[in-house]
Structure formats: C-alpha cells, structure tokens
Design a protein around this nucleic acid. Structure first.
Length: 203
DNA sequence: GTATGGATGTTCT
DNA sequence: GAACATCCATACT
C-alpha cells in the first residue's frame, strides 16, 4: 500500500548473503527489493524466487561466459538483467564467487511502497498482479538493461537489497517455471499462501 | 474458471 | 533459423 513516508529499510551487506544460488534463493524470501527512481521509491517483499545453480543446463551461464550473461559471473549480490521473448526484462541476482556463473531469478514481489508508480508502468493492474511474474516485476519497477551489472549491496542508488520488514512466512518449494531442461529440480521457492506469487495458485 | 496462440528482439547454432 | 527463465487477449467450458 502507498505509504506517506518511506518505510525504514536496513540495507543488506554482501557478507550477509549466503553463497550459492539455492541458499540465496531461499534466504531472499521476505527480504526487500528497493527501486529508487526520479519520481519516487518503489519497494516490495520478495515472495518468489528460482535458483539457477552452477552447472545447471537450464541456466544462462551453462555454456560459459558471454557478453550477455557476464553479470551472472560477478560476485554474489549483483544484478543480471536480460531481455526475453522480445518483450520483457527479467531480474536476477548473482549468487556465487566471482567467475562462477550462478544466480537467482526474482519472480514476484509483494508491493510495499510506490504502488502508484508501478501502475503508471502497468496501467490497470491490480495490487495482487502488479509484480506477479518476472516480466511484470521488471516492468512495474522500470528495470531495464541499464541496471545490468549493478551492485545491489550498496544500500543506495537505483536498485538495492534491504532486510525483511516482516519475517517470511512458511517456505514452499517446487519445480521451476518456463524451462525445458532440468525440469524436475526443486529450485523454485515461494512464500506459502501469498496472493502475490505467480503460477496457478501455488504448485 | 482453463486453454490456446501470437507477439516481439536478442543470442547463439 | 530456432529457441527463449513471458504475458496478454481471446475463446472456450
């Protein structure tokens, strides 16, 4: 809901982030993503993530480092933004040591601040749909390639990670969505019962 | 409520 | 030329 004043959000330091995509993906649930724009601040609780682990055939880093996926090979806590299906951006967070190539896809947010700013980019969307799904999340927050490679552990700037403002609920896991390889691995994590999670009612 | 298919651009074969 | 970590409108039950 739109807050009159900014919520107090404590920035996360890199040392706090677990290393490894699966560990980071679980740990990020309940944490806060903050998008600072000219016209104000957008923030949300992370309620759904997917891990793309090292050596994972469905991960973009699988075939090695290229110009496109270079940000996945940065030390954990950096943004990897890519363009997909000709229409959408997706936001990932690198999860390993420098040079490894692993990350966490952010799939859905529960809005905390800046709902009006999100609606401006996704006219007509309901609160519960505004950042439900990776493409919608990126659109609602105005995330584009410009943010690719950004360090999210600075506590300031255009995009950064903050601590949970409310503890994460019960954690659930499932197979990942929208991939054609390594489809049986349980590397999608989400908060149980959250209406802000993508997919048909849990899974 | 679910199912289907089109749109769109970048990357890599 | 194909595949792609998706979304939305439309057409159904």
């Amino acid at each position: 809901m739109p807050a009159e004043r900014p919520i107090a959000i404590r920035p996360l330091a890199r040392a706090e982030l677990p290393s490894g995509a699966a560990a980071l993906a679980r740990w990020l649930l309940g944490k806060t993503l903050v998008r600072q724009r000219q016209d104000g601040r957008i923030s949300g609780r992370i309620v759904e993530t997917e891990a793309y682990v090292s050596g994972d055939a469905s991960g973009h880093a699988f075939k090695g480092k290229t110009a496109r996926n270079a940000s996945l090979f940065l030390e954990r806590g950096h943004a990897y933004v890519y363009f997909i299906y000709g229409c959408w951006f997706s936001l990932n967070i690198s999860a390993g040591r420098a040079g490894v190539g692993t990350g966490v896809l952010l799939r859905a947010l529960e809005p905390l601040e800046g709902f009006d700013l999100m609606v401006r980019r996704r006219p007509g969307a309901k609160l519960s749909d505004i950042a439900r799904g990776p493409g919608r999340l990126a659109t609602a927050l105005g995330i584009t390639r410009e943010l690719d490679g950004l360090d999210l552990c600075t506590g300031r700037g255009a995009l950064w990670l903050g601590d949970a403002v409310r503890p994460a609920g019960r954690l659930r896991r499932s197979t990942r969505i929208g991939i054609s390889r390594e489809t049986t691995r349980l590397l999608r994590f989400y908060e149980e019962g959250s209406p802000f999670v993508s997919g048909p009612r849990g899974r």
